[in-house]
């Protein structure tokens, strides 16, 4: 961080960082991995996956939900859940102020968005982490919203899908955040006992408390290509063992090789793959697929028909 960044108030810095991840207004952008210059509408049409190198860009929670759910019948749920500062935590800054800054920068109350909607006609509940909000860290609000979403899925007997992206537990909520691990795991276990499917989709990156609870407890665990997921961060491990980590450590392929996940799913295939899986787990007839086709060709099932633009904003 340059000295000029240091003297800027957090809000300004955050906004700047945010703008970078959401890609500026301009029509051209650069792939953060291969540095190819990309035409913004092309990139959007490709679900924010680089058309040149296939790098899956980090995307926000709302964009994530938008490209995953069917276009109609979506409803955001549990919007009343707000973060609390029970400890009145203060370091160099007050946690309260950090929260306010993050809320301003992202326009979200905290780091998890929940919606109910349909996937290829199948009703379900979906939650997505907003990494731009405090690194997607899980404090009370994230744990509570996840739990309520899961409880709704449980009551209605409809699947829950979670897209996680998180640095772990939120330090500023100390043990309250740690206990969200126990809380979310408990409600997932109830779903499991009741036979209500839970699919966990890991997107870059997932670490710490989120990894050691809700992210790895799916009936089916899925990861996007090249996502990093692990318990301890690479720096901590390197410090502990005093050696360089192997290439690809904690990446999706590593997770697949070591049996932590069921499959790696390309973002373009997410709707189809999860739709197929959930239809089987809920014994939904294959006939449920057509409703998706009703949506004026929104589907890009074979990846060939891209002219039917999904988001025409």
């Amino acid at each position: 961080m340059s000295w000029i960044d240091k003297i800027l108030p957090t809000g300004v810095r955050k906004e700047e960082g945010n703008r970078r991840s959401n890609v500026p207004e301009g029509l051209w952008t650069k792939c953060v991995k291969c540095e190819a210059v990309l035409y913004r509408p092309d990139l959007e049409r490709n679900d924010d996956v680089c058309p040149k190198c296939d790098h899956h860009m980090r995307i926000g929670a709302r964009r994530r939900l938008d490209i995953f759910l069917d276009q109609h019948d979506r409803q955001e749920i549990h919007t009343d859940v707000e973060p609390v500062d029970r400890l009145k935590f203060k370091d160099k800054k007050r946690y309260r102020d950090r929260l306010t800054a993050a809320q301003k920068a992202t326009g979200e109350k905290d780091a998890l968005i929940a919606m109910r909607g349909t996937l290829q006609g199948m009703p379900l509940v979906v939650v997505a982490f907003e990494f731009a909000f405090h690194g997607g860290s899980m404090g009370y609000a994230v744990g509570e919203k996840f739990t309520r979403a899961a409880q709704l899925a449980l009551e209605e007997g409809i699947p829950l899908v979670c897209f996680s992206a998180s640095g772990g537990a939120r330090m500023q909520e100390a043990l309250i955040s740690l206990m969200q691990m126990a809380k979310t795991s408990a409600v997932i276990e109830r779903m499991k006992q009741a036979g209500v499917p839970y699919v966990s989709v890991m997107t870059d990156p997932i670490y710490g408390g989120v990894s050691a609870s809700l992210a790895l407890l799916g009936d089916i665990n899925v990861a996007e290509p090249d996502a990093r997921a692990g318990f301890a961060g690479p720096n901590i491990i390197e410090q502990t063992i005093r050696q360089k980590l192997p290439k690809g450590f904690q990446r999706s392929e590593f997770l697949l090789d070591h049996g932590a996940i069921d499959m790696i799913v390309h973002r373009n295939d997410m709707r189809d793959t999860l739709g197929r899986l959930l239809a089987k787990l809920t014994a939904t007839e294959l006939a449920q697929s057509p409703p998706a086709a009703e949506e004026e060709g929104v589907e890009t099932r074979d990846g060939e028909e891209v002219e039917s633009v999904q988001d025409d904003d």
Binding site: M181, E189, Q193, L216, F231, I236, I237, I241, H258, A260
Partner: peptide
């Protein structure tokens, strides 16, 4: 919990998560 390569390879996150889930019931 041990932050090492072998821990990650054998799924330390899943091992902890599983305990949280089962202990809850």
């Amino acid at each position: 919990a041990y932050p090492g390569i072998d821990s990650e390879e054998r799924g330390i996150s899943e091992a902890i998560a599983q305990n949280l889930a089962v202990m809850s019931r």
